[in-house]
């Protein structure tokens, strides 16, 4: 059985080590926070916060306290706030250990496309280009194939890029792959998924 959204998030949480400062993207990456267990992971919200807490209880929402997805959140005892230039200074300066992000396409050289589809409404890249260029490690969590069964792990991205050669590790519903010299390397298969299954579902070169 391939992994579902929660299992992918649970697997991604294994990448995080105690004491890390991490930025989680929108979608499945947000779920990773549910699986960090006893590890002290400090979540950065790039609009200007380290130490992001859970959603507030109903009636306790604060309009001055939102995450980068513009959702109301809460603070923790270790929370700090800062302005956007400082926030991206810590991203650009390599202080954030890892970012876990979604993707539309990843290429075998680590190119990432996750911000626009030509011909469709373009909303903007937000902080994605800064994150992939600046953080220590870029971990992508994504479905291995499209709804039509086409591989999203490609020899070359077809969509406009968010960054070139930036992805380190890919966690899909089929398993875990690393970007290495010459292509992608299978690190782990989801339960009941074989390396041959992954090869068959992947356009990118598997080394």
């Amino acid at each position: 059985m391939p992994w579902d959204r929660n299992q992918m998030a649970e697997r991604a949480a294994e990448e995080l080590e105690d004491g890390m400062y991490v930025n989680l993207g929108i979608g499945i990456p947000t779920l990773v926070a549910n699986y960090v267990g006893d590890k002290e992971i400090t979540l950065q919200s790039e609009n200007g916060m380290l130490g992001m807490g859970a959603f507030p209880y109903e009636g306790e929402e604060d309009p001055d306290l939102i995450n980068a997805g513009k959702q109301t959140i809460t603070e923790l005892s270790r929370t700090s706030y800062f302005d956007s230039a400082t926030s991206f200074g810590m991203i650009r300066g390599g202080k954030i250990a890892a970012a876990i992000l979604g993707a539309m396409e990843v290429a075998e050289n680590g190119d990432l496309a996750n911000w626009m589809i030509p011909g469709k409404l373009v909303k903007g890249m937000g902080g994605a280009m800064d994150l992939v260029a600046g953080v220590g490690k870029v971990i992508v969590v994504m479905d291995h194939t499209s709804k039509h069964g086409d591989s999203k792990l490609l020899k070359e991205c077809t969509l406009p890029l968010t960054g070139t050669g930036v992805v380190d590790r890919i966690i899909t519903n089929l398993g875990v792959l690393d970007v290495v010299e010459g292509g992608l390397k299978i690190i782990e298969c989801a339960d009941g998924v074989t390396e041959d299954d992954i090869r068959a579902a992947t356009e990118a070169t598997i080394v």
Partner: peptide
């Protein structure tokens, strides 16, 4: 890019007409 926009403002205000970044 969000960080580039923030730094463009910060730099402009600090008398820095341009800066280099890996972003983008």
């Amino acid at each position: 890019p969000q960080g580039t926009l923030a730094e463009r403002m910060r730099a402009g205000g600090a008398g820095i007409p341009g800066f280099y970044t890996k972003t983008g």
